[in-house]
């Protein structure tokens, strides 16, 4: 069996695992990882399609699409992480502001 089908099926499986992870977890970073994994799954399917070419030389168009896809996926992952980071900071400040630190403690004014 031409190996492309194996990789395509594995890509589809990764896509499903990613989407399930995305919609079932609550932890923000986990959900961002899940969307990145689902993205990798779709891209592996695209490249697996490119390798079906009988002439042995893979079809370059899906490769270009996947290059664009990876850049888009990295941008959205990095943006998601930046937003999650800022939200964690604001929540920490809000939590720290709401209950005053017990003693002088390490917390600065």
């Amino acid at each position: 069996m031409n190996p492309w089908a194996v990789y395509a099926l594995s890509g589809v499986a990764m896509f499903s695992v990613g989407l399930v992870g995305l919609f079932s977890h609550q932890h923000v970073v986990k959900r961002i990882l899940a969307s990145n994994i689902a993205g990798s799954g779709v891209l592996i399917v695209l490249v697996a399609l490119a390798r079906r070419a009988p002439s042995g030389v893979p079809d370059p168009v899906p490769h270009a699409l996947v290059l664009t896809g990876i850049v888009v996926s990295v941008s959205s992952t990095a943006l998601g992480v930046a937003l999650a980071r800022r939200m964690a900071r604001l929540r920490a400040d809000a939590a720290r502001a709401s209950e005053p630190p017990p003693g002088s403690g390490g917390e600065g004014p």
């Binding site: 993205g39 959205s76 937003l83 939200m87």
Partner: peptide, 20 residues
Amino acid sequence: LDAGLRYLLFALPGSLCYLL
């Protein structure tokens, strides 16, 4: 920020389904 993250985490799978 909460709205932005929520929108991102719902729009991304939509785009990925479309791409697949």
